[in-house]
Design a binder for these strands. Structure first.
Length: 585
DNA sequence: GCGGCGACAG
């Protein structure tokens, strides 16, 4: 045990090992249970049920024994051992074992090499995966379809899906291996997840004309990609197509399709599919219920979400933390913080562990409902629960502090985020820009903008919208106008909201000619003023006492068939009461 | 004998 620990520590993986101090008595009883009577005959472990290896401490111990014993255990035992460690997501540890096996001349085969390649891929080092492929050739282990498929997946993980597609074509052209169903699924999934759903459709169509048969996983991946792209009709046509091609949809197909339908509010179709599933004797599982509950929560239909929860409990399917997180998020969005908190406590009471997303939902709920101190308490609780903050939790907390006008604290939290090695993302920078602008720290905001560009984060339309809003609020309408002018050179098109903010500012400052020019430009760019534009302009003009202009816009809005929203109506009524002698409605 | 693919919460 000690030697094993030292060896592993030397390889720098001590941190990944977890409980090295596994009680020795427990090892012995575990080993007795699996028939490990005599160390010299490790072959008695051939039938060892590796599922009993549940922690790294025990895994390291068993591996240490395996590597020492003579004659050595079979190659499949070593592969089983590595596989267990991979399933525990301890990829670095598995690679250290692989390394040790090589150094001590333990038996290996192409399966071992494939496991090692998979570990490198899962650690985002597909380049090392290819190095192992080189070793395969050198050592005479002939790579097979699994080897290439693992590398293909690694390339996809590395966000180079097009290269994966090229490798696939090369494999076909050079006849390096015969692609199978799993490989096709991997590539289709990679293409869809990488944002190339169109290419995935083309590939599937091409394969259908050949002898390669896409399986249910391939169809599911494609249906998922289409649904996430909002192409629900296309997803449904693939759903029908797979039935025509004698590939029966399974619970994943149904859940994925329902997820797409829920997203566009097609509840009747969802109901139809649930009935179809039941007719086909396919049971709804925890994923299916989770999709339904989440969609209902997003719609704000908490009663229906709770009903679905009850149905699943009645069917003896235990709701998991994901489902409860959806409910917490739903109640938080509706400002029902007491209900959200109650569910949070019930999660803990049931022995489930709230994760960082659960905490994020609750923190966000408190922030948006003006309970920043409660949010802060939860934020501080996260590391004590053994959870790690993410960019999401930092972003929400910083945003919450800024919303309360606590700019210095928000900025401090940003620096703490960097200290804690949580990498800021585009959302972080946008929130910071917003805060700095609202705190009238214009120069600091622009230096942040440069900093984000230096870090490789290029502002998107939301970031520019934030800049425009901040500059307008600060009365710097010229600077805001300049940003809009420069957008096309950055490959972005100004949107209605952006134009609206500048328009309101121009009218408020009495720059009527400029405003009219901008309105023309807006129409020319195919960005016609919408209901929101008119409402914002009218409210802005009333607030700055430019009621004549406001009335003119009101008239134009009505002519164009738009209506004043409730906020505008209340501002108009307030204005009417103040100036009832001057204005007649 | 042992390895590679799919659906859920921010």
């Amino acid at each position: 045990m000690r030697a094993c620990a030292i060896a592993l520590i030397r390889r720098g993986i001590a941190s990944e090992i977890g409980t090295l101090s596994h009680p020795f008595s427990l090892f012995c009883s575990d080993l007795r249970n699996v028939g490990f009577q005599c160390r010299r005959h490790f072959s008695s472990l051939l039938r060892l049920d590796f599922s009993i290896v549940k922690d790294m401490g025990f895994a390291s111990f068993v591996f240490g024994e395996m590597i020492k014993v003579r004659p050595p255990p079979s190659v499949s035992m070593f592969n089983n051992m590595l596989h267990v460690v991979v399933k525990m997501e301890q990829y670095t540890a598995a690679l250290s074992m692989f390394d040790e096996m090589r150094q001590s001349g333990a038996p290996m085969n192409v399966y071992t090499m494939n496991i090692a390649i998979n570990c490198y891929c899962l650690l985002n080092r597909v380049d090392f995966g290819f190095a192992v492929l080189g070793c395969c050739f050198k050592l005479g282990y002939e790579p097979n379809v699994v080897t290439f498929n693992t590398l293909l997946k690694g390339i996809c993980i590395d966000d180079k899906v097009i290269e994966a597609e090229q490798l696939f074509s090369k494999l076909l052209a050079l006849d390096l291996c015969e692609p199978n169903e799993v490989m096709i699924s991997t590539l289709i999934n990679g293409l869809c997840k990488g944002g190339y759903t169109g290419r995935a459709c083309d590939l599937l169509a091409l394969l259908e004309t050949r002898s390669y048969k896409p399986n249910v996983c391939a169809y599911n991946a494609l249906i998922d990609g289409l649904c996430k792209d909002g192409r629900v009709e296309d997803a449904l046509s693939f759903f029908r197509k797979m039935i025509d091609n004698d590939i029966p949809p399974d619970v994943v197909t149904y859940s994925t399709t329902m997820c797409g339908l829920c997203g566009v509010g097609r509840w009747k179709d969802v109901e139809y599919l649930v009935n179809e599933m039941l007719n086909r004797k396919i049971s709804l599982n925890v994923f299916t219920f989770s999709i339904l509950v989440n969609a209902l929560c997003k719609e704000g239909n908490m009663k229906a979400a709770e009903d679905v929860l009850e149905v699943m409990i009645r069917q003896n399917i235990s709701p998991d933390v994901v489902i409860y997180t959806s409910l917490i998020d739903g109640y938080c969005s509706r400002g029902q913080m007491d209900k959200a908190k109650e569910i949070f406590h019930s999660v803990v009471d049931q022995g489930l562990e709230p994760n960082i997303i659960t905490y994020h939902s609750l923190i966000k709920g408190y922030c948006t409902n003006g309970k920043i101190d409660e949010a802060w308490c939860l934020f501080l609780e996260v590391p004590h629960k053994g959870l790690q903050h993410t960019a999401h939790t930092y972003n929400t907390m910083i945003h919450g502090l800024f919303r309360e006008g606590r700019f210095a604290e928000g900025c401090d939290l940003f620096y703490r985020m960097e200290d804690q090695q949580v990498h800021p993302d585009l959302v972080t920078y946008t929130i910071l820009l917003d805060g700095l602008l609202r705190d009238h720290q214009i120069d600091k905001a622009f230096s942040f903008l440069r900093r984000m560009e230096d870090s490789g984060f290029y502002p998107d339309i939301v970031t520019y919208g934030t800049l425009v809003k901040g500059l307008c609020a600060d009365g710097r309408v010229e600077a805001a106008r300049h940003i809009i002018n420069r957008l096309p050179s950055k490959g972005l098109q100004p949107d209605v909201q952006m134009y609206t903010m500048v328009l309101v500012s121009l009218y408020q400052q009495g720059l009527v000619m400029e405003a009219k020019g901008l309105l023309r430009e807006m129409e020319e760019n195919g960005c016609s003023p919408c209901s929101v534009t008119y409402n914002f302009i009218i409210r802005g003009l009333l607030k700055s006492n430019k009621h004549c202009w406001a009335m003119q816009f009101l008239k134009e809005m009505i002519i164009r068939g738009f209506v004043a929203d409730s906020t505008t109506v209340s501002v108009l009524l307030k204005f009417q009461t103040q100036k009832k002698d001057e204005i007649k409605f």
